[in-house]
């Protein structure tokens, strides 16, 4: 028995110039917030952007993107939904709605394969993957099925989070995969936004230095984050500057002059 789906994945993603997997081995560090706000910032920088929510069991990017959950249109395949600021968007939640989705590993892989095989992306400069936490099926499937994917690693200054994130970085280094940088989320520091917290040498910036990676941006801890995300323009105010910088950093890495 031959599964025909893997054969067309490269063709489906041919209109996509770069695939960026927003990853972190640790949960709760803000991968979805960072991927969605990076998508919006890249759109405002004039780039064509799609976002694929691969956190099947905890899909939430649609909430942040203000995307109405409905069945995608069929036209030669299924067409991504159009979300806030014309970000093309696809999620398991388009099919499961707000139901819980109890999946085991093999089922996760089947679903990912199906979505990659039948989703017809328009030409994009960036397809951002909102990855689930962990170093499990989704990450391994991305490595297997999307060999051109680049990684953006999200961390918080928490020592616990950083320790787990460093394991992911070590794995990505071992596999010689391209990591475009780290994003520090929920930074507790002050004016310059990237002061290391706790003991010197243990913060996200220090981790970036240790791994010889750029710190793409430092997003401050904001108690009012929920209100900002629900506002018509989440990039206005305290979230704007860091994500504009993150977008510049991502664009600057290999896509100069391409719109």
């Amino acid at each position: 028995m031959i599964d025909p789906r893997p054969e067309v994945i490269a063709r489906r993603l041919a209109p996509v110039r770069r695939i960026l997997a927003f990853s972190s081995a640790k949960g709760g560090v803000g991968k979805s917030v960072c991927s969605v706000l990076s998508a919006l910032a890249l759109r405002r920088a004039g780039r064509r952007v799609g976002l694929l929510d691969l956190d099947f069991q905890g899909a939430s990017a649609h909430l942040l993107l203000g995307a109405e959950l409905r069945f995608p249109e069929e036209q030669g395949g299924i067409r991504p939904l159009r979300a806030r600021e014309s970000v093309d968007f696809m999620s398991f939640a388009a099919f499961s709605r707000e139901s819980a989705v109890p999946l085991r590993g093999g089922e996760v892989s089947e679903a990912l394969l199906e979505m990659l095989a039948v989703t017809i992306w328009e030409p994009l400069d960036f397809l951002l993957l909102d990855m689930p936490p962990g170093i499990g099926d989704e990450l391994l499937d991305v490595l297997r099925l999307l060999p051109s994917a680049e990684f953006v690693v999200v961390a918080t200054p928490s020592a616990l989070a950083l320790q787990v994130v460093e394991r992911l970085l070590a794995l990505l280094e071992e596999l010689r995969l391209p990591v475009r940088g780290l994003i520090e989320n929920m930074a507790r520091s002050g004016a310059d936004g990237c002061v290391e917290t706790e003991t010197a040498g243990r913060g996200v910036a220090a981790a970036a230095r240790r791994h010889r990676l750029p710190l793409l941006g430092s997003v401050p801890y904001l108690p009012e984050i929920e209100e900002l995300l629900a506002s018509p323009d989440p990039l206005r105010g305290a979230l704007g500057q860091p994500f504009r910088g993150i977008a510049r950093g991502l664009i600057g890495h290999g896509l100069e002059g391409v719109v």
């Binding site: 069945f71 398991f92 499961s96 139901s99 819980a100 089947e110």
Partner: peptide
């Protein structure tokens, strides 16, 4: 049924 048609693993939601 429509959801499962698009993505059979949706069955686990329903």
């Amino acid at each position: 049924r429509e959801a499962i048609h698009f993505l059979p693993e949706s069955a686990h939601a329903y």
